[in-house]
Simulated scan of single mutants.
Amino acid sequence: MEIQLDDLPALLATVHLRLRGFLSLVGRWASETAPRAADRLVTLLDENFEISGPLELG
């Protein structure tokens, strides 16, 4: 499968949005599973994968 260069920004924006959704789901799951560690887990995932920051395409 080939990806056109012009399609790349929209595809990356979609991935970024889905990763933010994933981070939110992890937070909900962790709050139920390990409430004391939930915030730390979300923070570590976000810091290591740089999910919640702005998507810089330029």
Rank of each mutant, 00 (worst) to 15 (best):
I3Q: 14
I3A: 04
Q4F: 14
L5G: 10
D7Y: 06
L8R: 14
L8F: 13
A10S: 13
A10H: 01
L11W: 11
L11D: 12
L11Y: 07
L11H: 12
L12W: 02
L12M: 08
L12F: 07
A13I: 02
A13H: 07
H16M: 11
H16D: 10
L17F: 02
L17K: 10
R20T: 06
G21D: 07
G21L: 07
F22L: 03
L23D: 00
S24F: 15
V26S: 00
G27H: 01
R28N: 13
W29C: 05
A30G: 07
A30T: 08
S31G: 12
E32R: 12
T33G: 01
T33D: 07
T33A: 15
P35D: 14
P35I: 13
R36D: 15
A37K: 08
A38E: 11
R40C: 15
R40M: 09
R40S: 12
L41F: 04
L41N: 01
L44Q: 15
L44C: 12
L45A: 05
L45V: 09
L45Q: 03
D46P: 00
E47A: 09
E47T: 14
F49M: 08
I51C: 00
I51A: 01
S52I: 00
G53L: 10
P54A: 15
E56V: 05
L57G: 07
L57R: 03
